[in-house]
């Protein structure tokens, strides 16, 4: 897979693990960007320990705020961090192969597919599973943030939640405003340090 051979003997294996991890995650991502990001967090942070939790959150913010598919954006970020340009290539390939293959097959006979009662039933069950994964990740992350006891961050967290949940403010707008507030905070802290 990679040409570095003996110099970095584990590189081929690393790329392979990255590829099949993204393939499996992408094949089971129902319900949008936060589902795939939650699955990636569980795989790359909790299981493989390739990334720190903070990095995964940073990458989530960047992936969400950038244009394009969140899954693809997140796989570019993780792929590059783990294995550079080759990492980007295998992670993106792993991410797009399942939807492309599945859609290719389904578009041949999509009426039969979407009307099939068993497909509906399986899907309904898997939706509940995806909801459980994101809830599980929310609980882990929420606990950690609460423990940090940073009053400004806790306030912003509450405000962001209310804005998105009750006022339907777009996720991108929330991220951009938060980045701006963070920037102001950095300026104030720098001034205070002088």
């Amino acid at each position: 897979m990679s040409g570095t051979g003996e110099a970095r003997p584990k590189r081929g294996k690393l790329l392979w693990t990255l590829f099949h991890s993204m393939l499996a995650i992408s094949a089971f991502t129902f319900g949008g960007g936060f589902v795939i990001v939650s699955l990636m967090k569980k795989r790359f942070v909790d299981e493989l320990k390739w990334l720190e939790e903070d990095e995964m959150l940073d990458m989530t913010a960047i992936a969400q705020a950038s244009p394009g598919a969140i899954a693809v954006n997140a796989s570019i970020l993780v792929g590059r961090r783990v294995a550079g340009a080759a990492g980007i290539a295998v992670a993106v390939l792993g991410t797009i192969l399942p939807p492309v293959a599945i859609l290719g097959v389904i578009s041949l006979a999509y009426e039969a597919f979407s009307a099939n009662e068993w497909v509906q039933v399986l899907l309904k069950g898997m939706q509940a599973g995806a909801a459980a994964v994101v809830t599980d990740v929310t609980v882990s992350l929420g606990r950690r943030t609460a423990k940090a006891r940073d009053p400004l961050n806790l306030t912003l967290m509450a405000l962001a939640f209310v804005a998105v949940q009750f006022f339907r403010v777009s996720v991108v707008a929330v991220i951009l405003v938060a980045a701006l507030i963070g920037l102001l905070r950095a300026l104030v802290e720098r001034r205070a340090a002088r």
Partner: peptide
């Protein structure tokens, strides 16, 4: 500092997605 602020907000967004 910017990233710390963003992380807190991302947690809120993930919570909202979970709901």
């Amino acid at each position: 500092t910017v990233l710390r602020t963003l992380r807190a907000v991302i947690v809120a967004l993930i919570a909202s997605a979970a709901i």
